[in-house]
Amino acid sequence: MSQPVETTYRECVKQAIREAMIRDQRVFLMGEDVGHYGGCYAVSKGLLAEFGEERIRDTPLSENAFTGIGIGAALGGLRPIVEIMTVNFSFLALDQIINNAATLLHMSGGAFNVPLVIRMATGAGRQLAAQHSHSMEGWYAHIPGLKVLTPATLEDARGMLWTALEDPDPVLIFEHVMLYNRSGTLAADAGPVDIAKAAVRREGSDVSLLTYGGALYKTLEAADKLAEEGIAAEVVDLRVLRPLDTATIVASVARTRRAVVIDEGWRSGGVSAEIAARIMEQAFWELDAPVERVCGLEVPIPYAAHLEQAALPQVEGIVAAARRSLGR
């Protein structure tokens, strides 16, 4: 085990891309402003100089076109990383993602895999308003044929990309915008991680807080607050929204008998609804309280800072939901 180093989420994503480019000549990065500008969240700064225009490719403002090019490249044997600036823009590429990337393996009778990775920024908190701030990963988690990853920790930001590139099928990685500046320590030789299991980030016996992505840190903070009241909350980081690791969720709920789902996405028909339904199906007899949900309010994300914050799950709301599930 090597020395831990100080780093950031942004740096972890960048080093993951660098490592992949070095290890595999078939890997290249493509997207709007990824080259000369260095990425709208500065993830790819410096990579153009290191790898050249062949492998760090700026694209026109046409998500449908360059995502389609990514699919073609993947079918042709390359390992493209397509970056879409924010999940709201990915809707321009829905036809390519859902009608092509997700279906070709099935429609070709298993003949054509699409080993494509698409990275997108997701989530609110930077006052970018209703066309740049939504959490739509739950939508993609609805689609068979896709894998949907939501790295929340430095370790996952560093390690999920390579495993995703090794996967023979399309993988979508959602990076929450409020995580890029998050700093911490990581082993200098941190490497690939699994993209199949949820992780228990904090153990507890009284209530399971189930979350992912940007909401993880609010949830951990809520668990600290609950601990001050003598409530031991378990925090489960889903990590992968499709396929969902139901076993870990059910095992946690079976231990604590109570579940609160925290999802920055909207409540109706979202990830939180799916998780609550699976708990009903597989852990009903373990429950001591109805499943609680803390979700983004059902409005387009507002621009004004105070309204934006009011529309998002917050620590106080998570604490209150956990208390309700305990009857306190």
């Binding site: 001591d288 309280a289 109805p290 309700r324 305990l326 009857g327």
Partner: peptide, 11 residues
């Protein structure tokens, strides 16, 4: 019952 809304819970 000492659970939510006075419900009887496992404890």
């Amino acid at each position: 019952g000492r659970g939510p809304q006075g419900a009887v819970v496992s404890s």
